[in-house]
Structures are given as structure tokens and as C-alpha cells.
Design a protein around this nucleic acid. Structure first.
Length: 273
DNA sequence: GTGACCACCTGGCCGC
DNA sequence: TGCGGCCAGGTGGTCA
């Protein structure tokens, strides 16, 4: 389940292999994957454009082409694989890009949640999903005052508030649990009840957690793998997520699991009162 | 404006 | 062994 560190890991690997190369053909086998424009238009527009740069915004992979930006959201299980030209289409491979007429880049998504958009460069500010996104975790503007302002009318649990991409972008369910554990904050605490020092702790631990996860190449839980099937190692450093019934690494109390807004939430009831 | 809920989607797991 | 039902979860849409 790709979050920011996994998106960065995948983007780096794609950049290494695809920078300055040309998309010579494209086939779409499951049309809803293409969020904008129509799949027919997507195919015709993307052909013969060179991939000039790779970056991320929130959980989106941003590929700068000649005339457009190709935006890819992996959602739950989107993955990229390289294959030789005219390779047999494997199960759950929904979009195939031919690169330099030499090899293929396959987008696989078992659950079909992933999305791609092709946005003209001159329309990126009005049409991209970025307008709805909040601050990146490393943004200098991410301060306790910023969060206090965003949370002032939020009575929802902090667990839910941190998943709100319009406030901080890039945090998903796994790192949310880890950040709150490191911050000794109960995930059910209403977001508007947190004081400056707690908000500062959240910011600090968000950066620590994501930096460490990026260093480890992301987290492999269930079946997330990055491009070329590379698996991340951060799951070896998780403190509470998926650790239900195990001892808290801090106090030894048993880690419990509850549901908050439909999301599985793991925490230590003693450390995170 | 806010928050709760649902749909999307499939594979894995569990109980019967 | 086979079947049905539940769970996982990021995002966008709907409704109260």
C-alpha cells in the first residue's frame, strides 16, 4: 500500500531507467485506470513524448513529458514492471507503454484502484489534483501553527486527520500509526485538542518516520513491491502497525487494534493514553 | 463546513 | 475440499 516513501522509491527507480527516453506506443486494457483524458486521447497524446524529469507530489508520481505531465497514483497496489517488447500480457497488467520501440513498461494493479492522468503543461495549475493537496512533510511551512489552524474545527480523531491529504500529503495508514506511537498520542484524540508541543512532536516524528522509510526503500506489507519487484525493508522497523497482540517495544504492554473511521489502527494503550 | 458512510476492486484468510 | 463472507485500504462522491 504505497505511501510517500514507497512512491519516492518507485519514482527513483523509474527515473534511473526511463529518464530522457521516449514513449513510442501505449496500450490501455482497463480504461477506468485513465482518469483524464479519455483513454483514446491519452494514448494518442502520450505517443512520441520524451520523459524529461521525474518527481513526486503527495502520493502522485509526476513525469514531465514534452507537452504534458503524466501523473500516476499507485493507490493500493499499483506497480510497474519492465518487460521485453511484445511480451505476453500478464494478469492484472492494465497499461503498457512501449519505450524507445525497444522494451515495455507494464502497469499492474490487481485491485484496479490506480489512476493515471495526462495533464497539459499549461493547465497543470487548474486541472491537476495537486490543488487539493496540503503541505509535503518536509515543507518549512509545516509548523504547529499551520496544523493548529487546519485542525481548529476538526473534532475527528487525529488518526483520521493525519490521513487527510489536504492537510499533510503523503501519510497513509501504516506511517500514521507509527507517527502517533512515536509521539505518544492516542489515535482517538480529537485533532483540535492537541497543543503546540504535541503538534511539534507529530511534525518531527513524521519526518523521522518517512526519512527512515525512504532510506529502507519503503514498507512491504501484504504485497506492495516497487518497480521490478523490489521489496522495501521498513516493515522490519515498524513499532505498532500489524503488531496486534505483541508487546509494545517501549513499555511491554500488549498492542491493540481498533477501527477508526473504517481503518485498522494499531496502538499501545499505555504509551498512547 | 464538517463528518460519516459507501463504492470501487480482488486476493487472502477464516469459519463452517 | 469447497464455498461464502469478511477484510485490507486511498480516494472521491453522496448525504445528513
Amino acid at each position: 500500500m504505497p505511501e510517500k516513501p514507497e512512491v519516492i522509491t518507485v519514482t527513483k527507480k523509474l527515473e534511473k531507467r526511463l529518464l530522457n527516453r521516449k514513449i513510442t506506443d501505449c496500450k490501455v486494457y482497463y480504461e477506468p485506470i485513465i482518469g483524464y483524458p479519455s483513454s483514446k486521447e491519452f494514448i494518442s497524446k502520450i505517443k512520441n513524448q520524451t520523459m524529461n524529469s521525474f518527481s513526486t507530489r503527495g502520493k502522485w508520481i509526476v513525469i514531465e513529458l514534452d507537452r504534458d505531465y503524466l501523473l500516476v497514483h499507485l493507490r493500493m497496489e499499483g506497480k510497474f514492471f519492465f518487460r521485453e517488447k511484445n511480451a505476453i500480457l500478464e494478469k492484472h497488467h492494465h497499461v503498457v507503454f512501449t519505450i524507445d520501440n525497444e522494451e515495455e513498461l507494464h502497469f499492474q494493479d490487481v485491485r484496479k484502484f490506480g489512476r493515471m492522468k495526462l495533464i497539459p503543461k499549461d493547465k497543470i495549475n487548474e486541472m491537476s489534483p495537486f490543488t487539493e493537496l496540503g503541505l509535503e512533510p518536509w515543507d518549512k511551512s509545516l509548523t504547529p501553527d499551520y496544523l493548529k489552524d487546519k485542525f481548529k474545527n476538526k473534532k475527528i480523531p487525529i488518526k483520521t486527520a493525519l490521513l487527510d491529504q489536504s492537510i499533510i500529503t503523503g501519510i497513509g495508514n501504516i506511517y500514521d500509526d507509527e507517527i502517533l506511537f512515536l509521539s505518544h498520542i492516542n489515535p482517538l484524540t480529537p485533532a483540535n485538542k492537541l497543543n503546540d508541543s504535541k503538534l511539534q512532536l507529530i511534525i518531527k516524528n513524521t519526518i523521522i518516520t518517512l526519512d527512515k522509510a525512504i532510506e529502507e526503500g519503503g514498507t512491504t506489507i501484504r504485497n506492495y513491491t516497487s518497480e521490478e519487484g523490489v521489496t522495501g525493508l521498513f516493515q522490519n522497523h515498524l513499532y505498532v502497525h500489524t503488531k496486534v497482540g505483541e508487546a509494545c517495544p517501549n513499555c511491554g504492554e500488549t498492542i491493540i487494534k481498533i477501527k477508526i473511521n473504517g481503518r485498522g489502527t494499531y496502538y499501545c494503550p499505555k504509551c498512547q493514553k
